[in-house]
Amino acid sequence: MTRELFTSWALREAMAQEMRRDDRVILMGEDIAEYGGAFKVTEGLLGEFGPQRVINTPISENGFVGVAVGAALTGLRPIVEIMFMDFVTLAMDQIVNHAAKFHYIYGDGVTVPMVLRLPAGGGRGYGATHSQTLDSWFISVPGLKVVAPWSPADAKGLLTAAIRDDNPVIFIEHKLLYSVKGPVPEGEHVVEIGQANRVREGDDLSIIAYSKMVDEALEAAEALSEVGVQCDVIDLRTLQPLDDKAIVESAARTGRVILIEEGVRQGGVMAEVACRIMEGAFDYLEAPPVRLGGGFAPIPCAESLERSLMPSAADVIAVAQQILA
């Protein structure tokens, strides 16, 4: 059975179902218990699972991520909420030097099965330290998997897969998607990590996006179809490992690619994706791929400024017109 759920509910359902299925799964984070988390994603879980498994932490990001790493090494499967993705900077040591490396250096039998849930992205006027998209940092750290769902169903399915994965998974949740509703399967729902999803089919132009930017991609594709341009829209869903096959197939078929991400364009995720397209589909390209991404500035607070820093459907349409001209 499928019903319409908010993304935040879909995420909560994934956690609750996995916690019922496996009592090694625990939650940790700031204000996640009674309060339900800054974005209410863990609301109600304390009531069902109790304070032993839904653990409020002090404001010690590096410390409690490290505690989660140690717990994961010794038999638990922690899901850690970092209140805002921006605060992950404080936990980078435990993520990069510890979680990502322990399986490699401590030997075959040693694993770090943990999920870091990171509410990311701007668009709400939270300003420079509460709006960032830092995804690209993580894709260059061997040992981490990086997932960033767009649809509510994928949010549930990918979180379930992340919880079951024996590696540390960076799970990026866009704050503006929490309140988006969509159909979500009721029972167990697993979406395999590492697979992109074609959310719209077309042969004229590929638009590659993920997370909230899939909305911009679809809006642009809809507008472009009205002028006779049929777009292939690819939702990456997983950023590490990237689904090379899906990316290259779409690029080779359409020959024209626009890549869009919310994070800073320079050194961004799409720089990597664009490069893989060059490597895998160069001979099929009719035009150089174009990257759209966040401008090179801290995220400003004022709505007009914040909007102009971020890529949008209008930018995609403008670029498409140039490429197709």
Binding site: N62, G63, F64, V65, G66, V67, A68, V69, G70, A71, A72, L73, T74, G75, L76, D93, Q94, N97, H98, K101, F102, I105, Y106, G107, G109, V110
Partner: peptide, 29 residues
């Protein structure tokens, strides 16, 4: 950077202080 899980040695650590939270997590387990 080495460990011996079977004898309860949860690893040496190249980051000064980095192992203290990790051990605390093992105690949580």
């Amino acid at each position: 950077h080495m460990a011996g899980w079977d004898i309860g040695f949860l690893g040496s650590n190249g980051i000064t202080g980095g192992g203290i939270p990790v051990a605390t997590g093992a105690a949580l387990s």
